[in-house]
Nucleic acid binder design. Structure first.
Lengths: 335, 335
DNA sequence: ACAGATTTTTTCATCGATACCCCCTCGTAC
DNA sequence: GTACGAGGGGGTATCGATGAAAAAATCTGT
């Protein structure tokens, strides 16, 4: 193990005491410029770096946020919904910009997260992504007493939780408007609208409302939530075709489902966008490469990360519950 | 700030001293079963959780690994190559399985990583992903004195570094064999083969060798590394068509490039797989959704994560330099 | 030149664990 | 009955920083 330089070594070299080194490096006003310069130089020469564990122990603050990505039961971390990966990236950027470190873990079932991170003083707060796709995890979070927990989640369905979500209703409206502008008259929504999937429900509501204002009644195909998102799309198209119901457009609750829809339509020889228009929601990268490329509603990822981080930091600072919406926009591609 | 339970509180409740609590919880053999039971119960009743910062300070060990994802300059974290996201997922799984935490950061330029993580005692070791796509970062890592640094990287081109890579040559062979089995006679390799992109070079070499054994001379289209991976594929197809060179199969150095190739071929009205077969490398999820779905060479992600984590842990344990290869397999889809 | 007000630095305690050394039992051997 | 050894815990120092209080150095003004 290499010898580690401590503040004491720096102090010795700079000819001051160790606490002075600490103050100099932390920018305390109670140290003269001259001394600070000496200390900084000594620190540089020795390659000194503050031991964060000591600082954290002393300060009781970690400058670290934990991100927990909750997958579907049995799903490996590698298979995580790409939308969540992008969200993770934007959260990382936002945390870094605020000087916070990010501790990341992938879980497919609930753990004693708060014990592991907050109580163990590994993180000051927690950002949870993906609860809505895992009923067990959702139950865990709902059962908590939230009074003294600093956390925020993406898309939680509950009103008493601190969350950040997409502008789902607005997005649903935009989707409907887009399909109407394509001249479609019989659009169908595909997705789960359970109480847990509140985000999907919101998308549907905005969608239905916009259609209504155009004098069209929205229809929806419910899906089996035990299937993967993609299979949900495949299955929905299958049952839609079997039902004999006429349709000329599909709004899928999320992009993976939309990709399943595209595949199923292609398999059935139904051309997109000639006979049926398809629009998704999430803006995942894979949508760029499908055939045709998937038109979608994409949330502003940068803001999503920013708001998640900001929200949990607000909580840490003791501010009251806030829930924020991330603006979305239409990304027209080929479907 | 909520009152935090310390080992002292547990000791008091269990009627022992604080160090005994520590021993009991750490499974020391020097504590009787009876005492241990008392301690465990008291700890449970109080909801006690060890403060990791204190432990780390004392032990000088963090049980944390840092993962640094290096993107292309100017690329946002959200746009990270999905292959790296999958790798990140598998690294997370492997780290968790070994009781390690994961600190994640996305960077698009070199920082003083070792100061930030190792010297600051935030992590015991570092896993670096993506250096090969960022010349500046590569230069940083090459310029280091590696003697006392515990780190491993994915796909580094250098022989004196600790790395884990795919079985690139073998994968190249498999790709060639696949194209030959499809009855192709004029396959072309598309990708950068700079000294930095050693992995791509290896893929090409395996590819060329397998072709040679079938009496075919491999050709390759070099690409402009300043373009995105995807655009590289698009551009390569364009210049290939312009050159008038005949070809009936393409092996792209990575899946994003392959997706660009598929798009460019479609735009040129060249049908895949009827007129041209295409195979990629990486096994990214988006390849499932392209049209046709992308045939590819996929590394075993679980092993990739395992080997990365294992390798850096070996280094931490003081074992000599090791470089490991991850087995790959052919994933036949539609291209 | 000296008391008093400031500025700067030192001294010392502290965060919450772990590690080492020592001591007290109690059991076994002689 | 005494000695010795092992097992089980207690006492105390320590990891490396920060914060508060005390002390020293410097600067005022008269």
């Amino acid at each position: 193990m290499a010898f580690r330089v401590t503040a004491f070594d720096v102090a010795q070299r700079a000819g001051v005491t160790q606490p002075t080194v600490s103050r100099a490096l932390n920018g305390s006003p109670k140290v003269s410029d001259e001394t600070r310069a000496k200390v900084l130089q000594a620190a540089q020469e020795l390659g000194y770096v503050i031991n964060q564990n000591a600082t954290r122990l002393r300060r009781g603050e970690t400058m670290t946020l934990a991100v927990v990505l909750i997958g579907r039961a049995g799903e490996s971390a590698t298979e995580t919904n790409p939308f969540y990966f992008s969200l993770l990236g934007s959260v990382a950027a936002a945390a870094t910009a605020r000087g916070y470190n990010l501790l990341v873990s992938f879980q497919d079932s609930p753990e004693n997260f708060f014990g592991q991170y907050d109580d163990a003083r590994q993180a000051d707060g927690m950002i949870v992504i993906g609860t809505t796709q895992n009923p067990e995890a959702w139950a865990y979070f709902r059962g908590l007493d939230h009074a003294d927990k600093a956390w925020v989640c993406w898309g939680a369905p509950d009103d008493d939780l601190r969350w950040v979500r997409s502008e789902n209703e607005g997005g649903g409206r935009i989707a409907a408007r887009y399909l109407l502008d394509c001249g479609r008259k019989q659009p169908v929504f595909i997705g789960a609208r359970t109480s847990q999937q509140r985000q999907f429900g919101e998308r549907y509501e905005g969608f239905a409302e916009e259609l209504r204002s155009a004098g069209i009644v929205a229809t929806a195909i419910e899906v089996d939530e035990t299937l993967s998102r993609e299979e949900q799309g495949v299955e929905a198209v299958r049952s839609l075709l079997q039902s004999g119901q006429a349709f000329d457009a599909i709004f899928a609750a999320c992009d993976l489902t939309a990709l399943g829809v595209l595949g199923a339509l292609a398999d059935s020889g139904i051309s997109v966008p000639e006979r049926v228009s398809v629009i998704g929601f999430d803006g995942i990268r894979a949508g760029n490469y499908s055939s045709p490329p998937l038109t979608t509603i994409e949330p502003d990822f940068q803001q999503a990360g920013d708001l998640l981080v900001q929200n949990v930091l607000n909580r840490i600072a003791g501010e009251p519950l806030t829930q924020r919406r991330v603006p979305v926009q239409l990304v027209k591609r080929g479907s």
